[in-house]
Design a protein around this nucleic acid. Structure first.
Length: 735
DNA sequence: CCATTAGGTAAGGGTAATACACAACT
DNA sequence: GAGTTGTGTATTACCCTTACCTAATG
């Protein structure tokens, strides 16, 4: 697969070169920009935030009009059919009147033509991808499962992860588009078997679950009689009547109640005429213990956590439902009977430690039976799991964190004997431009919380441990500076003791194995290894920009001489967009002005004439008067004079690469978006050298390339080598 | 006729969120 | 003593797997 680097950005005096490590097939010039933050909403829409100050200075009111830009982007990890290419649409949107920023929404989509999304195309996609036999058979028996697992196939069980649901939804969406159907419930509930032939097989693609599991999941998802909520007393009364009348005909009862069959079935399991509620009496507890030991053939005092028919137990206990019996036994009585000890804080730490030692990739892989073995304060494996859940829930965004990240974070907190604070995540902003089927997964926004909202004032304690973002960095230093190089390969992003970061959903830090060191990773299980490793140790400190609390400014604390202008700093990254701003320590005080530096994005234009007509080419800058229209050529406004979104509408063939003077391939046709800062900032842009400050916006191809050893191959985005634009004069890019 | 496919039903173990009770603290 | 907070327990809506079944299809 050849990666297409079809977009580039550059500033007036600096270039970032980006080329692929794998095949070196493309080089992209990149712009240095400032004060920009990329985020992604749940649809995968990439949102590029720029401080309002810039926009305000640069643009008139009409800058708030959405300006679509189609940017070509080839993707390897997604199955796109020949002739269709993923595109990124860029829209500038006002966030709100109050917020001092605007956003540029970049949405990567694969816009398939009618023929592309035909059945044949889908079939082609599936044909070219490895389809797990697990997801293509209606297996139900343990034997089937064991057979496939023994053959090395993955067999996913348990609760569906967010990633799985995303895949499922994406598959359904694709299927619907291919058939021109709007509402999936048409297929699921209205079509005959014959009409929906291949539906479940199609949407199960990419999932390591048997068709039946997919089928059940889809039914539940789209059954509007499911998720109705709590039963009212009236419903309970009616349910009792219907139960007498229809017995176990759950479908009929459910239809009469407007509930799903499984819902009424489950509710009936909780109902028992003789059921007590509330605190268990000593007599009930005694009976429960007797019954459990009797039915399992065990002696009092023996631990029993499995192989109990709770329906039978409930029948014999008489006054409690099976759920009550199970809960009481597994969460209390079993432990009390076998002489368990009290759970302590040390046990909390121990639990985290033990789970970490298992080195499992997924929480579902934890064998709670084994883990709870010989642990006197554990009441049951099920109880231990709930204990883990209790600990986990102390991290506010635990649902958005990969298991490894969550565990590592908790581990470090435990090791440092810090309270389990909460990583607070801000809800991503709606894209504002619809939600096309996004295939990019990007979320890069770290915003500082106001210090007043930190742990001391809020029940939600903020994570206060230093945040480090190391990135796999390849530092390429000319020989004359190699003597200054050392082994430091980590850039740390140190939040400081008083600073708190608000981390948006789908963005998180993945521990690298080095304490306090993380990879930026998106919530979609895609890694964002981004290491900037200059030879000398470079400590990057996140600092707040007064003008935009949503941006990351990474300050290089190294002395300038360590990042002298004749060094190349190569950033390996695997993401469509990353901003790194390196600022010398001397510049720390001028963070505000830094936030107003220029932003220029050049992208190859993948725009047909029709596309181009849809593009709002408007001046954002103060001096850029009327909207730019077709024919605008790679215009880059220098300094602080304005911002523009430029597009060359003539370009129809995306991804063309041309040779540039420095021998690197560059895309000829560009889309340029530039926000311009103040005159002060212009000086920064012009004069800053390595270590002084630059933000690199790095469009990258969307393909999977293995990067670090400790990064799961499934979670790694395309790796690209960037040459610091600051070093453009050297013009040396390296991988 | 038989095997396979594509569901479909029911039972029951389980999870996760919330409600509740109560003790400790202010 | 009242109000608040933290913690453990109970409840319950919903999830998932398993076993068994059926009708259509090749």
């Amino acid at each position: 697969m050849i990666f297409c680097y079809c977009c580039r950005a550059r500033t007036q005096n600096r270039k970032l070169s980006m080329n692929t490590i794998e095949d070196d097939s493309g080089t992209v010039t990149l712009e240095t920009v400032n004060s920009v933050t990329l985020t992604q909403d749940t649809d995968g829409t990439i949102i590029l935030h720029c401080p309002h100050n810039d926009a305000e200075e640069l643009g008139s009111d009409d800058t708030l009009e959405p300006a679509h830009k189609r940017l070509h982007l080839c993707s390897e990890d997604e199955p796109h059919v020949s002739g269709s290419a993923p595109r990124i649409s860029v829209v500038t949107l006002p966030i709100s009147e109050k917020e001092e920023s605007f956003e540029v929404t970049m949405t990567a989509t694969t816009e398939m033509t009618e023929s592309d999304i035909s059945e044949g195309a889908v079939a082609q996609i599936q044909k070219t991808e490895e389809v797990s036999p697990v997801s293509q058979a209606w297996f139900t028996t343990k034997e089937d499962k064991d057979t496939l697992v023994n053959k090395g196939h993955k067999w996913k069980q348990g609760m569906w992860s967010k990633e799985e649901i995303d895949i499922l939804m994406s598959n359904i969406d694709r299927y619907l588009k291919s058939r021109g159907i709007q509402d999936p419930t048409e297929i699921i509930f209205e079509m005959s078997k014959d009409e929906r032939k291949d539906f479940y097989r199609s949407i199960a693609w990419g999932l390591n679950r048997p068709l039946f599991a997919v089928y059940r999941r889809v039914l539940r998802m789209y059954d509007n009689r499911n998720h109705v909520g709590k039963y009212t007393p009236e419903e309970i009364d009616k349910l009792k009547e219907l139960r007498v009348k229809h017995g176990n005909d759950w479908a009929t009862i459910g239809a009469a109640l407007g509930r799903s069959a499984s819902s009424v079935k489950d509710r009936c399991r909780l109902m028992k005429d003789t059921c007590n509620t509330g605190k268990w009496t000593e007599d009930e507890e005694r009976r429960l213990a007797e019954v459990v030991h009797e039915l399992t053939g065990t002696e009092p005092g023996h631990t029993v956590t499995q192989g109990v028919s709770w329906a039978s137990v409930a029948d014999l206990v008489g006054t409690r439902s099976e759920k009550q019996c199970r809960s009481k036994w597994l969460n209390y009585l079993n432990w009390k009977q076998s002489g368990g000890t009290e759970w302590t804080k040390e046990d909390d730490m121990n639990l985290i430690k033990r789970i970490a030692e298992l080195e499992v990739e997924d929480e579902n892989e934890i064998n709670w039976d084994i883990l709870s073995g010989g642990w006197s304060s554990v009441r049951s494996p099920q109880w231990l799991r709930s204990k883990w859940w209790t600990i986990k829930r102390q991290v506010a965004n635990h649902k958005d964190l990969p298991f490894s990240v969550l565990l590592k974070g908790l581990q470090e907190l435990a090791e440092n004997q810090l309270p389990f604070g909460k990583v607070v995540m801000a809800a991503p902003r709606p894209p504002g431009s619809g939600s096309p089927s996004s295939l990019q997964q990007v979320q890069i926004r770290v915003a500082r919380l106001d210090e007043s909202s930190s742990a001391s004032h809020s029940p939600v304690a903020a994570l206060q441990i230093p945040v480090q973002i190391p990135v796999q960095i390849t530092h390429v230093a000319p020989s004359d500076t190699s003597s200054t190089a050392n082994d430091a390969e980590t850039i740390t992003l140190n939040a400081g003791t008083l600073q708190t970061f608000e981390i948006l959903p789908s963005f998180h830090l993945q521990p690298t194995g080095t304490p306090g060191t993380y990879y930026i990773q998106t919530g979609s299980n895609q890694g964002l290894p981004l290491t900037l490793a200059a030879s000398p140790t470079v400590t990057l400190t996140a600092a707040t920009s007064p003008s935009s609390p949503e941006q990351i400014i990474v300050h290089a604390l190294s002395p300038d001489n360590l990042l002298s202008s004749n060094e190349n700093v190569t950033v390996q990254m695997s993401h469509p967009g990353v901003i790194i701003q390196t600022v010398s320590s001397d510049d720390l005080a001028s963070a505000e002005s830094l936030s107003q530096s220029a932003l220029t994005v050049e992208q190859s234009v993948l725009a047909s004439a029709e596309d181009a007509s849809d593009v709002n080419l408007e001046k954002v800058g103060a001096e850029a008067g009327s909207p730019q229209r077709e024919g605008a050529e790679q215009e880059v406004i220098s300094g602080s004079e304005g911002a523009k979104f430029l597009q060359n509408p003539q370009v129809e063939a995306p991804g063309h690469l041309t040779e540039t003077g420095d021998g690197q391939e560059h895309l000829t046709d560009t889309f340029s978006a530039e926000t311009l800062g103040s005159p002060t900032m212009e000086e920064h842009v012009v004069e800053r050298t390595v270590g002084e400050g630059a933000v690199m916006i790095v469009p990258s191809p969307n393909s999977f390339i293995q990067t670090a050893d400790d990064i799961d191959s499934d979670s790694v985005l395309p790796l690209t080598t960037l040459t610091d634009p600051i070093l453009e004069n050297q013009g040396e890019s390296s991988d």
